[in-house]
Design a protein around this nucleic acid. Structure first.
Lengths: 197, 197, 197, 197
DNA sequence: AATGAATGAGACTTCATTCAT
DNA sequence: CATGAATGAAGTCTCATTCAT
């Protein structure tokens, strides 16, 4: 068990990484359109032509960043499929865990999340894909009677995505995120009405 | 009984209105940053200097449009406060009506909705305000025991706004919107778990 | 019989004309690729954006100039078709006149000729077209037994165009041009061999 | 009888040759200005700094290629001086042979010909020199009464060069080139008029 | 003998905005 | 009330060339 060997770090790879980080930062701060390549290279400490050594265009750099986020998002989603054998009493906790994983992912690199999930032009596609991935999970979970079957899986998926839209941008400590995830799970599972009686 | 007072229709007012409509269309289609004043005036059939006769800047025109949407949104929200005396059996229907009013508003002028609710840079503020307005309603309704009191009103408000984010952009007929509103109300009130038993 | 009324001379038309002249000058001096829009606008006394008010691109401006030359060239060519009833004794004189018209045209605006006839990328097409137009004339004239019929019209046309390529760039006074045209006609009609005997 | 002396083939010489060939190809295809050093090195399979190991600049590489063509052209021209004792009946054939040598030279390396003879900025000088060399021949041949003496040698030389300009770029088989050369000789010697009677 | 990496200088083009009429 | 004409400022991208190894 050793720490992962760092990927080859030629000078070029390091420059590329600096550019990626700078691009993430600036895109997140300014938005795609308002971002100028000049800003990115200034933050990366290189000249403009160097940028074009590593990215074909401003748009290509943006796509690179957006895809990086989507990858992570898809992985997280795939890992959140619920086991049908889950005991009833633990269900909401388990859903809270799923929300926590999403919120942790989104908090881990706020800037990348900003680009991939909240800002146009990429956010629309990201969310559409997320709805799709989540709906796949939900459909199976409906088959396992984990969720109500009287509503289309896509609708339920959208409820989840809507919650992430609302809570994914919050600045929150680890503990606070755990609480938020718990609240999301509550709302997601049981809604807003008071318990009867 | 007098004839309806004719809206002021000096030539200037008509030009201003044409510019507003054109701006709405182009901002919705292209987004704020990518919109060019040249496009707006082309769609409005006037020249560029004329634009500056009616709006101080591109940004001012955008603000004008965004504010128009926010006004309507606030009105709708205020009208959606629930009457505490509502019979228990009708509750979900009543919530569905609230959703329907929101979805109708958003469908009525898709382009204005796009600008005011979905596109940066304005959408963040719009949604923040909406959360605030809705949370005011929810807080009162919690006091009236209409919603569960174990979660902050703002969280519940965000659930609602998240649903609007997910469903407010759908192309849907009147009837389909009614169904959607019903589904939203169901999810909002009772969540996604199957009924016990 | 009055002098032609000058075309409408709005300020815009005058600016366009200044740009045209400047473009002609610079393209002729530097060649298409090496020409910078900055040079053109400096010579025209306007700013760069103004250039794009009148031409869609550097390339469009170039095309405009090249086409202007081609128009004139085609007109001249059409006017040079020989009358079949021409007396034998006057034939070479008449061919000399044709050459003179070509050389005059090319001398009249040296810079435009440079662009349209001598410089890439336009010159290849211009010459190909000229060969075609001239060959049309030659074919008819061969039918009228004015030129030898044992060689394809296109070959004879190319002989003519080759002569223009060689003599069209010469700086020459009116009189000198007349002489040159005469010599061209001689060579074109009778070749380089000494008269027999 | 010894084996042919191997051309010096140090690794460097081979690289230089690859660069030369690549440069020829790209200059011919794109023209001097539009050619990028990046294209040349890609075709040569080396990196950009290597290019500068062998040529001082893009311009130097271009000059190298142009001069290579001019050398060959001058050799061919010198070899084409007509023997004054040539029998009258064979004269046109002999001129056709001269044209054939020129056309063969130009066909042998189309790309080098393109650069040296047809494309700016080098073509103007190449042709001027060729006119000069040919005129030297013609002047002697006029003295030998092989060509008419009533026109300056330079004019006659230009007729020849003009024909090469027209026919030197044609894609043509060996046989077709022979025919073309024959036609050129005919036109060059006797012009375009039908034979009398 | 060759290259990975970088850059200075500059090209074309766009756009919000204004002036003069 | 409206426009024809113009521009300052800036943006993306390219390219010949060089440095350090």
């Amino acid at each position: 068990m050793s720490a992962p060997v760092p990927a080859e770090t030629t000078k070029g790879e390091r420059t590329r990484e600096r550019l990626r980080r700078a691009a993430t930062r600036v895109f997140a701060r300014e938005g795609y359109e308002a971002t100028r390549v000049a800003d990115i290279v200034r933050e990366a400490g290189v000249t403009q032509p160097t940028f074009y050594l590593y990215f074909a265009s401003k748009e290509a750099a943006y796509e690179d960043r957006v895809e990086a986020f989507r990858q992570r998002l898809q992985q997280t989603t795939l890992g959140n499929l619920l086991d049908p054998s889950i005991p009833h009493a633990e269900f909401t906790d388990r859903v809270a865990l799923s929300f926590r994983r999403f919120l942790d992912l989104m908090a881990e690199d706020r800037e990348l999340t900003e680009i991939g999930f909240f800002q146009p032009p990429g956010c629309t596609i990201t969310k559409a894909r997320l709805v799709h991935w989540v709906a796949d999970n939900i459909a199976r979970e409906q088959a396992d009677r984990l969720f109500r079957g009287d509503l289309p899986a896509e609708l339920i998926a959208r409820l989840l995505v809507g919650l992430l839209e609302q809570f994914g941008r919050m600045e929150a400590s680890d503990d606070r995120r755990r609480e938020l995830a718990r609240a999301c799970a509550e709302l997601f599972c049981h809604g807003t009405r008071p318990p009867p009686g």
